[in-house]
Design a protein around this nucleic acid. Structure first.
Lengths: 227, 227
DNA sequence: GATGCTTAGATTATCAGACAATCTATTTCA
DNA sequence: TGAAATAGATTGTCTGATAATCTAAGCATC
């Protein structure tokens, strides 16, 4: 009984093929694509069906279309994605445990790289330190969460591993869910934790930084239990 | 000069209004929406324009459409989002070193979780083992690469950390970039490496599996030097 | 020769109407 | 009563056409 049989909708197939076309052609942002009519005949579908595929991709920012100019390759519009993902209550599909484990994995994994780059580039420490300083003066909860996300994002950026940057945006969406579990009482504790991690990294004590960061993130786990 | 002036495209407006319709009506997953014709007249656009909006939202899983049944509110399709995350600007022009470092970080970071889940779920080992078995009988280089990607993808999936699924696209980029460095000569070596990692994971020896996987991935680094 | 304007072509944006495919609900028959 | 056939509703896809918009070539002017 294949009730949930994936009735291969035409536009999904076309979207896949178009995506493959971009990847295989190694096309970069701004590169021109064939016209709608050409792509339609190439894929063997009507222009309308092709449009439904391109419009879906355009909604994500993956392709851009302008009259008179044609289709060009774009890049994922994260604002658009988070806007439509954030409003939806169904975001709770991913368990808090998964989110925490993922954060621990990525952020602790990044530490050795950060420490290594800190030795040659002082600005990394300065930048992270500045965010933590701002954190001390945050008045509202919203501002605090914003800066907290910034800190962890910059920590990942400091590793120099740009592929991980793609994750930070998606993770940021998930982090919003922990907003509720952040109490004013824990502000100072979190700031001290950040500072401890920074200073240990600067002096090359990766293991101690790792231990602290792990505790810092997993502290959310207990708070989630209460709900 | 506003070249990037946001010419309010019709479907974006419609998508916004549809989103507002869902929010204001406090509609939940599975709730029915008006038909395409009704929504089209309600918003004062043609059915086709409305479709372009709904299809965009459907691409993200926010609405679902079935012939004969109509439109319903869906749940966000996270896989779809992460699947197309490969087009994130951060993934453009990454150096081979970064790709290797990122792979090592993610894949070794995943190992403890995989080992833990393997204890309770035998199918994980079976599935990975089956892929590796297929790998032995791969005739063409293309087929070999495909299965190799499958293996590493399933390794990540076996961790149960769904946010990391986005990484599969990074894998695709990696193998695309390193296609040249994969020679038939290394086939058997890679298969043995996979098998070693699997067996160590099954017996809970995470550290040994970690060491082997690290070497396995970083072997590409030396080969790149030659070019 | 260089510069600015005009025009023609190309391409997407939007529309209208039609038929096919598929699901739901009713009706019909045993 | 229960199952099968039927009718209606709804989305999926197609064809064709017109409007809006951009690009580039051509032209005139200086």
């Amino acid at each position: 009984m294949l009730e949930t049989v994936p009735r291969s909708k035409l536009r999904d197939v076309v979207a896949d093929r178009l995506k493959a076309f971009i990847v295989e052609g190694n096309l970069k942002s701004g590169d021109r694509l064939p016209t709608e009519t050409e792509l339609a005949t190439k894929f063997g579908v009507s222009r309308l069906s092709l449009r439904e595929a391109t419009k879906s991709l355009e909604f994500l920012g993956i392709v851009e279309a302008k009259p008179g100019r044609g289709l060009t390759v774009g890049s994922v519009n994260m604002e658009r994605v988070t806007e439509y993902l954030g409003f939806h209550p169904a975001l709770h599909d991913v368990s808090p445990e998964e989110l925490i484990d993922t954060r621990v994995l990525i952020e602790t994994g990044v530490l050795p790289h950060v420490a290594r780059r800190m030795k040659r580039d002082d600005t990394l420490y300065v930048k992270l330190n500045a965010i933590n300083a701002d954190l001390r003066h945050a008045r509202s909860l919203a501002r605090w969460v914003e800066l907290d996300i910034d800190f962890h994002r910059e920590l990942i950026c400091a590793s120099g591993l740009s592929p991980l940057m793609a994750f930070t945006d998606v993770l940021a969406v998930f982090f919003q869910r922990f907003r509720e579990s952040v109490k004013k009482a824990e502000w100072s504790q979190g700031i001290d934790s950040h500072q401890f991690i920074l200073d240990k990294l600067k002096s090359g004590r990766v293991r101690e930084a790792d231990q602290e960061l792990r505790t810092h993130i997993e502290s959310h786990r207990e708070r989630m239990e209460l709900h």
